[in-house]
Amino acid sequence: MIEALSTLCGQLVQAGVLPPAFVHLFMARALIAAVVVGGVFGLLSPLVQARRLAFFSAALGQSAMVGVAVGVFLGEPIEAPWAGLFGVTTLSALWLVFARRRLGLSADTLVGVFLAISLAVGLTALVLVTRRFNIHQVEAVLFGSPLTVSDADLGVLMLVSVVVVAVVAASTRPLLLDALDPGLAAAARLRTGWWEYVFVAVLACAVVVALRVVGALLVEALVVIPAATARLLSSSWRRVTALSAVLGVVGGVAGVVVSAASLVPAGAAIVLCLGAAFVVAGLWSVLRGGRR
């Protein structure tokens, strides 16, 4: 599939549609990664906002630095410490939900404390484990790049995206009804607590695979902007979800193309394209007469 897409990209380069960089095979991988990550986060985005988990997602991205250190400590290669990343990020997500439910603290306070500490602990642990300060490794986690995605990364990405689609399909009703009113969800005998844990665990896995593409600092944009933009254009849950997923995919593709045609890093270009769509949708919404 990658070769076929690369050949198509080559033809489009010859036709002058795509920038010259698309003759390279890694650009086809970058396109696939951006499409899948954009689509996955576009799909997750409305539920993340309904459950007020945007700040939480940013904290998970930053906890990834601890995951890298743990992975390296366990003997994984520093460029692909998947067990450390998935393990630490998922456990962090589950712990945050458990702590919020048990301690009665506001989610913002708890996540704010965790966000600051996790990055500091991650940087310290990485130095302790690698015995040196490797700024390139830190950059890779913080900023990511779809241009460096390998075939193995794409495999992990595809696997996570299938799980995300399945969990979003199954958890939407309990999580949304619980957000509307916990009593309504309880009356329907939906296991909202269980689904919240499942959802944040899957969100954590999606954040991990997104680190490769946009990095920890920009992952929050992926979970916020698609649904926020779609929300400006529609008031129906189904339409918002569909629009959000489409915007995620289009933003991913547009970002990779803009990046290849300029010096803008791909992660930043993806977020800029999504941001431009948000501004246009905002103007459209204002011109149509304000809030829906």
């Binding site: 906002q49 309904a50 929300r231 529609s234």
Partner: peptide
Amino acid sequence: GYVPQQVRSSVALPLN
């Protein structure tokens, strides 16, 4: 069948 005292209405919940 449950009817709460107040039902949340939030822009974060795009529901018709």
